[in-house]
Design a protein around this nucleic acid. Structure first.
Lengths: 134, 134
DNA sequence: GACGAATGCAACCTCTATTGTTACGTATCA
DNA sequence: TGATACGTAACAATAGAGGTTGCATTCGTC
């Protein structure tokens, strides 16, 4: 795995879980299927848990499970949970001194923010159960 | 600069050029405005040139200029010229052995490809001249 | 209560991608 | 001929992500 592996891992895992929502899965099992490491899995799934998409149970017979029905989880939920803004630059550049450049800068960041927002709206139209369909 | 700096630099430069398409700009000037380095600028703008969005002139009084009218350059052109697929995993994972996992894998990559395609379509709706309007 | 299994989390290493920088070749125009 | 600017290669420095180990904590079972 290399690029966008977090999003890929999240989608794989969630899609897999959506096929049998009641089954509890351990990070070790998931890591085996994904060809990675339990700690890496817990790292990514921890973000999904914080976003309320998954629940985790500690201790013996513990593991991970969907927190909601697959119909109630959209790809936008997943994308936002991972908190990786693909398009938008997160206010990294210091505001330029020149006022003309400043206006230009605001215009560019505004456009990129719009694009990101549109992408999120499109993602919100697809749920995990939509992905299940053959 | 850190994340998506290439796309950001490209959009800044192109948007700036769209405001006065006939003026020739040197990589040094652009680098000054963008707060970076002439070589970095030439690197990024070289991709835009290969994609036919810019023309460059060597030698004395040389520099960079738009190759087409601002109305004829969309953000999708820019994105594709930079050749950085933000969403799609470029067939990096080896196909899983288990057939069930294989089907799941194809489903997930298909969804990610759709997402990328959606993003590109959205980008194609905005031109450089659209960005000029405040 | 003790033991095993699982998450939660921190620290670290390694690898890769990107940026920044220097240097040099080449082309163009005065 | 000389100044200017692109084109490109090579290298250092940095940042980010994945991988790994270790350990504390929690929960079920014996």
């Amino acid at each position: 795995m290399k690029r966008n592996s977090r999003l890929s891992l999240a989608l794989h895992t969630l899609s897999h879980m959506a096929g049998d929502p009641n089954q509890m899965r351990t990070s070790a099992d998931i890591a085996d299927h994904a060809g990675t490491n339990p700690v890496v899995v817990r790292r990514v799934l921890g973000k999904l848990r914080k976003a309320g998409l998954l629940t985790s149970v500690k201790g013996h017979a513990g593991g991970w499970r969907l927190a909601r029905a697959p119909e109630a989880i959209t790809l936008a939920d997943v994308y936002l949970a991972l908190d990786e803004s693909l398009v938008a630059t997160a206010a990294d550049d210091p505001a330029p001194s020149c006022s003309v450049e400043h206006a230009l800068h605001r215009r560019v960041t505004g456009v990129m923010r719009d694009i990101e927002q549109t992408l999120i709206e499109r993602l919100a139209e697809t749920t995990l159960s939509d992905m299940q369909g053959h």
